[in-house]
Design a protein around this nucleic acid. Structure first.
Length: 427
RNA sequence: GUGGCUGUAGCUCAAUUGGUUAGAGCGCCGCACUGUGGCUGCGGAGGUUGCGGGUUCAAUUCCCGUCAGUCACCCCA
């Protein structure tokens, strides 16, 4: 049996790693553009960090074990508890609001599916210390701009936006019991992929009156903001409507649509919740987030309101691939230095090093090789330019500088070789 | 964790009703090509047909198990 990566874990061959780097670069660029600072924490944490606040159901999905010191530990399944601890530890000394982002590798022990592995990288952006809707709009705009930076448009994805307080108000207004509320969450979460009759049946079994079911379903499935103006919802929806207004002002209105069926699995969300989906509905959520005003207090004692999101690299990568937006994964070399004879090798090494000192990516044949083989290799490596050094050139104090794309070649003084190459590459 | 489908070369795939030496394209290496690359031609390496067992004169093909992938559940960073 061959040794291979564990199920749900990935080997990143150079071509794969290029894609990963491409995504990370967009994440860092846009987060930095929004004034966010990068942080990180340990990939391995005490098990209690997650069992204490995330609920017992999540323990089954933790990649946890006992370490050699007898400690119960877990690979991190999410970044937010670590963030909450770090922020709480220095809460008094940090200027608010705090804008932090991280790109942690996260783990879960679960059977894998398309877009869901046992390991992935996730951009986490959190804005801490600002309770108002301005912060919510800011992080949502950040998520949208990450997608735009990768070449995706409003035709490719949408932000589905809601606020937990709206559903709560709906249910409270209709006096649903706690057990019924739980059923509602389940039903609404999978409404789009479930036949209507099945949903209705579930609600009936939970003792929800048909009249209540009609009313709540009707509002929950609304595809417009207008129903939020109803007097019974006005207080609960004021924040969300302001978030929408701000996004419109930023010019990002096209990317946002209402979806009051968004529930989000994590228990700690308290207000705004949102998810990013591909418009064709082929993939699972690309990004999810929302407001969690009590978590930092619960973990670290400091009472700080937060809003943030996580965006994973797996589904995002699938989407970019489907839309033909992946970067070229070919290696790009600036210069290949080729020799005609073994007597040219010393000059070739010296020149290659000068070119590397000038910041160029340079290769040469490590062992003696025919010139045509070297140039073929230069071509295969995607080099823009080749420098050929032979006995005749050396006798004249020259080198030949070739533009591999245009098949042109010109002689340059050996003393000016770096300048000649730089000039060619600048074209 | 439950169920369906699928496992053949590095990749994408062939192989007749079960039939004797498992093929092709791409990629890789070499030669034509001892001071000039993309093309072309020729050659080569690379497989325990995922693994284990069973049926059969004979298994890539049929059956069982197992591992892995995938899809749907459960659930969702």
């Amino acid at each position: 049996m061959q040794l291979q990566a564990l199920p749900g874990f990935r080997d990143f061959f150079p071509a794969d790693h290029t894609i990963r780097t491409h995504i990370f670069a967009a994440w860092r660029t846009v987060a930095t553009r929004y004034g966010f600072e990068e942080y990180d924490g340990p990939p391995l944490e005490p098990l209690e960090l997650y069992t204490a606040k995330s609920g017992e159901e999540i323990v089954g999905q933790l990649y946890s074990f006992e370490d050699k010191g007898g400690r119960q530990v877990s690979l991190r399944p999410e970044m937010t508890p670590t963030l909450a601890r770090m922020v709480a530890a220095r809460a008094n000394g940090l200027r608010k609001p705090i804008r932090w982002f991280s790109i942690p590798q996260l783990f879960r022990y679960e059977r894998q599916q398309r877009g869901r592995l046992r390991e992935h990288f996730q951009l986490n952006c959190d804005l801490i210390g600002e309770p108002g809707p301005g912060a919510d709009a800011e992080v949502i705009a950040l998520a949208i701009d990450v997608m735009r930076a990768l070449g995706l448009t409003a035709g490719d994805f949408k932000v589905r936006l809601s606020d937990r307080r709206i559903l709560e108000a709906l249910l409270r207004h209709r006096q649903q019991s706690d057990a019924q509320v739980a059923v509602w969450h389940q039903v609404l979460d999978k409404l789009a992929r479930t036949p209507d009759a099945v949903s209705r049946q579930k609600l009936r079994e939970a003792g929800v009156a048909d009249a209540d079911a009609d009313a709540i379903m009707g509002l929950a499935q609304a595809k417009a903001w207008e129903p939020l103006a109803a007097p019974s919802l006005a207080a609960a929806s004021a924040s969300l409507l302001e978030v929408v207004r701000l996004l419109n002002v930023m010019g990002l209105g096209d990317y946002v649509e209402p979806d009051f069926t968004i529930v989000r699995g994590l228990a700690y969300y308290t207000g705004t919740v949102f998810e990013l989906f591909d418009t064709r509905g082929e993939l699972r959520a690309i990004c999810g987030g929302g407001r969690y005003d009590s978590l930092v207090g619960a973990i670290g004692g400091a009472d700080l309101p937060c809003v943030g999101f996580g965006m994973g690299d797996v589904v995002l990568g699938e989407l970019l691939k489907d839309r033909g937006l992946l970067p070229s994964t070919d290696a790009r070399l600036d210069v290949f230095v080729a020799t005609v004879s073994e007597q040219d090798r010393a000059d070739a090494l010296a020149l290659a090093h000068e070119l590397r000192d000038a910041g160029l990516s340079v290769e040469y044949a490590l062992a003696p090789q025919a010139l045509n083989k070297q140039l073929k290799h230069a071509d295969a490596r995607g080099a823009r330019c080749a420098v050929v050094i032979g006995p005749d050139d050396r006798a004249r104090g020259e080198v030949q500088v070739k533009d591999l794309a245009s098949h042109t070649q010109l002689a340059a003084k050996r003393t000016d070789a770096v300048g000649a190459v730089a000039a060619l590459l600048a074209r």
